[in-house]
């Protein structure tokens, strides 16, 4: 019976952490959706720069107020144990950030860049006002060093990260093409004749890469199907513009 009191404690801790992570993930999803909405507005508008700057500020706040606490929750844990809890938020964020980079610069951002945004030096931020219940227990604990996409961080003890499994990144990219599609369709409405065919080129590259993947997990295969449909919608849009 005594053993069961230990088990109870362990189960409760795990559930509590899971609950907190789910909540953070939900907040991240909502804020990412808002940023995407803002970015869609800026297509073809004159004050593009303003919108991009506004998005930049929002991303920064999102990093500090949500991702940093999330990183602290995951610190010293097996991130895959809680992946289901933060995966929706992370994917939505990848969708938003890739869309942001596309709108501002023009190309697909790679996972290393996304990962670096979600890597937080502890020293600097620690002194800031961010507070989480577990923060105090985290400092100086060594981060799970063997995560494959983050090998180079293995020596540093002074940072926490949200590890991004490559599949999560790709799922976010797949969702990003949905935004591309919406953007292209909006352009047709605005009689913008050039953007759709530029977007179409990028979508063809991504679609071609996705349909060429082998050993693909199911979730990603479903998104590939959606991606191909989006592609055909943009093709139809280009066709309509031509006719």
């Amino acid at each position: 019976i005594q053993a069961f009191r230990v088990f109870q404690n362990e189960l409760d801790n795990r559930n509590d952490r899971n609950e907190r992570i789910v909540k953070l993930s939900r907040d991240i999803t909502i804020e990412s959706k808002r940023i995407i909405f803002t970015l869609q507005r800026c297509v073809g508008s004159e004050n593009k720069e303003d919108v991009l700057n506004e998005a930049k500020v929002k991303f920064k706040e999102l990093h500090e107020s949500k991702f940093f606490p999330l990183a602290l929750e995951l610190e010293g844990q097996d991130p895959y144990q809680y992946l289901k809890a933060f995966s929706p938020g992370l994917q939505e964020y990848v969708e938003a950030i890739t869309f942001f980079h596309y709108v501002s610069g023009g190309n697909l951002v790679d996972i290393e860049r996304v990962q670096s945004d979600l890597t937080f030096p502890l020293k600097t931020l620690q002194s800031s006002e961010v507070k989480t219940p577990t923060q105090s227990t985290v400092i100086d604990k060594e981060h799970d060093a063997s995560h494959p996409i983050n090998d180079e961080s293995s020596q540093t003890k002074s940072q926490v990260i949200i590890p991004i499994p490559p599949s999560e990144y790709m799922l976010g990219v797949a969702d990003f093409t949905g935004e591309l599609m919406r953007m292209a369709i909006n352009c047709v409405g605005a009689r913008d004749l050039e953007t759709p065919s530029v977007v179409l080129d990028l979508m063809r590259v991504i679609n071609s890469a996705f349909t060429n993947f082998g050993n693909i997990p199911r979730e990603l295969r479903q998104k590939t199907r959606v991606l191909t449909q989006s592609l055909q919608k943009v093709e139809r849009a280009c066709y309509t513009l031509r006719v």
């Binding site: 063809r204 071609s208 349909t211 993947f213 082998g214 093709e235």
Partner: peptide
């Protein structure tokens, strides 16, 4: 898939 990737270029 490789063949398909090549032929997709016809579009």
């Amino acid at each position: 898939r490789e063949i398909q990737t090549i032929l997709q270029a016809i579009h």
